[in-house]
Design a protein around this nucleic acid. Sequence first.
DNA 1: AAAAGGCCAGTG
DNA 2: ACTGGCCTTTTC
Length: 863
Amino acid sequence: MSLEIAVLAAGAAYAGGVFLYEEPEGLNGHLRPGHLVLVPFGRGERPEPGVVWRRLAGKPSEGRGPDEEERGVRPRRRVIRLLDEEPVLDPMRLEWAAWLSRTYLAPLSECLRLMIPAGLIPRREPVYERCAPEGARGGLEHAVAVSFAEQVLLAALAEGPLAHSEVHAILRDFPLAERQRALRRLLERGWIRRSWRIREGRPPTLRMIRLKEEGILQALREGGIRLGRRGEIVARRRRLLERLQEAGRPLPADWLQAETGCTPADLRQLTRWGIIEPVERPIWEAADPYPVPEEPPPLTSDQALAWRAIERALKVGRFHAFLLHGITGSGKTELYLQAVAETLRRGKGALILVPELALTPQTARRFEARFPGQVAVWTGGMSPAQERAIWERIRRRQARVVVGTRSALFVPVPDLGLIVIDEAHDPSYKQDLRPEIPYRIPAYHAVDAAMALARALEAVVILGTATPSIELRYQAEHGLLEELRLPRRFLGYRPRLAAQARHFGASLEGFVETEAEALTSGLPPVEVVDMRQELKAGNTGIFSRALERALDQVLRRGQQAILFLNRRGAAPFVFCRDCGHLMRCSQCDLPLAEHLHPTRWVCHHCGAVEPPVARCPHCGSRRLKGMGIGTQAVEEAVRRRWPAARVLRWDLDTAPTRAAHALIWRRFADGEADVLIGTQVLTKGLDLPLVTLVGVILADVGLGLPDFRAAERTFQLLIQVAGRAGRGLFGGRVIFQTYRPDHPAVAAAARYDLDGFYRGEVAFRKAHGYPPFARLVRLLYWHAEAERAREAAERLGEALRHHLMAKGAPPSAMIGPAPCYFSRLRGLYRWHILLRGPDPVAWLRDFPLPPEWRVDVDPLEVL
DNA sequence: AAAAGGCCAGTG
DNA sequence: ACTGGCCTTTTC
C-alpha cells in the first residue's frame, strides 16, 4: 500500500508537489485523504508536512502510471507520523484544491499549503550523534587534521546526542562559519550522524484569569485595600475585578485586557498580591465571555426586500450567489448579520471576508456583539500559536463565525453554509505575485475561489459592494449572480436621530422616512470643477475657488471635511529645471517623489529613501524642483490657508500599521480634527457622520496608466470617496477637481451613474476583446540582468507561439513578449506575455512552462 | 527552498 | 591532499 502525499515544503512544488510514500507500520490502513502527516523529504530527509492525497491500490501492478515505470523501482520512504487524528481537510476541500491547481496553473501542493496554517506544523530540529567508531572512515587516531572545534564537538557528543541549538551553544566561542565547518566535516567523514527531532506541540491553551479572593470587591468598597497609586490604574484594575466577579468564572486574559484596558503588568501585580490567578485551559473549553447578544434591529423596506431573497436561498440550502449592490451606508452589514444568524440557526458555519486594510477589528466587533463568543478573527500576521488556537476553535465548532481577510477563505470551517465577501470589488482579494515569493503560488481571486468552494459545499455566497466590478455586473446580467439592490442610505431611526438633531442643532427635514421611523437619504451631490478654467482665471493653487468656499463654510460651521488625493508625499516628481532630467529610483526606474520634514526622495514602489542631491546628475544644475502635488502638499496648503483648522493626514506615511490606521480613524471620528487629508486608505474606514464635505483634489490620478481597468478603478475610487460625505444629519456635498471633466470615469462618477458607466465600459471591453468578453493570462518573468530577462522572454515567446499555432489559436491570442510597463522594479527587469481567449489556461495545460515563470490568471492589472 | 554533490582555483 | 567558494541538481 502506498500513499500519494502532497508535500508542503517549498521545494516540493518544483517537482509537481505530489510524492509516493509508504504507510508507517503502526497506522496500517488508517491514513485517509486529508490527513496531515510528516514525511522525510529531499536529500536531507528533513521532516516536512504533507497532506495525504490518495491511497493507491496495494498491488504493484495496479496504480502505477507509466511515468513511474520509467522512474524505476526505488525504495519508498515511510511516513514519519500522523500529526492530527482527524483529517485536516475534507473531501470537498481536497477537490477544491485540485480546482485551484487546475484553474490557476499552480502545483497542487501550493494550493493545499494555503489551507494549512504554519501553526499546525511542529517545530523540527536537527540532532547530531556520534556514530559507532567502526562506522567512521578511519578512527580519530588516523585523522590528518581535526580542528579544535571538531575536537570539542566530538568530546561533547561522546556524552550523548545533541540538538542543533545545543551544538551551537557548546561551540559558542567559535565563529559561526567555524561551527558549520566542523559539523559538515564530521558528517562528511561519517563520524557523526544527523537525525531530526520533532518538538511535540502542546495542544493550544488559553490563558484565563480566575478571581482568587472572592471578598475583594467588598473589601475595596470598605476602603481597606488600594489597587495602585494612580487613579487611572486603580480604575482599570477595579474594572477587571468587577468583570470577573460578574462572570463568576475564569475569563480569557487577552479578552479581559482588551475589555478593561489592563496591561500584562496589571495582571502580574494582581497575581502577586494573590487577588487573581492565571489558569491554562484548552482553547476549545474557553468559556464564553459575553453573556448577552445584541438584539437585531428591524430591517428597512429595502433591506427586507433583499432579505427575503437571501433567506429563501439559505432555507433551500443549495448553492446560490448574490451580488448585494448597496450604496455606502445602505445597511449591507445588517443583512450580513441576519444571514449569519439564519446560517447558525441551521447549524452551519459562516465566513465573512473583509478587505485587507479595512478596520477588521471594528468589523469583527459588530459580529461579536451579535454572536457573542462564536466569532473567530482570522487575519494575516498572526503568530503560529495564535493561528493554531483559532484554527482549533473553528474546527471544534466552538467558533462558528469567522471574520477575516483573504486568507480566511482557506480556514476549514465545518459545515460552511455562508460566505460573505464585503467590498467584493476590492483588489486585496486577489493574491498578487511577487518575485520574493518562491515558485508558482496560485494567483487566486477570493471571489472566484469562494464561488467554487460554495458550489462544492452547496453554500450561499453574498458579494457586497457599492461599486461592483464590470465582471460582477456582467455575471449578474447573465444570471450567474442574483443582484439585490439597496438604493438608499439608511441614517437611523427617528427617535435616536431626533435626539441627535437636538444635540447638534440640526433638523430632520429633507430625509425620507421609508417606513417604521427609518430615515434614509440620497447620495451627496457632486460638483465637478474644471481646473483648466481655474488656471485661466489665474488660480494656480491646489484649491479651486469652489472648494475653498466650501471648506471655509464647513470650518465655520464646525463640521468635518475629507480631502482626497491618491498620492503620498509633497510632490510626485522631481525635475531638473535646466535639462528636464527626472530623478528616478535606482532600483525601480520609477520617478522619485519628494517628501518633506525632513526633505527626502522616496520611491513609492520599493520604499527606498534617498537623501536629496544638490546637483542634477545629468547636467550639474542646482535647480532641482519637486513638481505636482501629493497629500503632504495638500496638508501644508490647508495649514497655510486655514491656520486654525485641525488637520490629520491619513496615508501610508502617517499610518504604517493596522493599529495606526485604527488610531487615525478613531481620532477623526472623535472630532479631534476638522480636516482629514488622505489617499485611498481612507475609503476603507467606517462611518464618519460629521463629514459634510469631500473634496477630491485631483480626480484624474491614475487615468493615464495604460491598463484596461484604469478607468474602472478611478470610477470606483471616486464613488467610494464621494460616499464618505453626508452620512449624517447635516447632509453633505462633494467636489471633484479635475483636468478631464469629460472623461467617462469622472463624469459618470459625478452623476453616480453606475449603469451608464457600465454600459460604456462593456462596449469598450467588447470592442477590444477584454474581460468579460475574453479571459486573460499574464505570464511574468523577472531577472536582475536585462539581457537574461529579454532572452528568457523571447525564448518562451517563440515556444509558445508554436504551441498556440499547433492548438489552432489565432495569432491575436498572444500579446508580447514585451517589457512590462513598469519595466524594472526592485532591481529586477520585468517581461511579460499576455494570452487572451475564451480559456487561455487550457492552452497552457500541456505546455511545459518553466517554473520560474509566474502565471497570473485573470490579472487585475497588466502593468 | 534547501540540501547535497560536483568542479576548480588556491594553499601548504 | 584538502579547503572554500561557486555552481548545478534533485526532491517519491
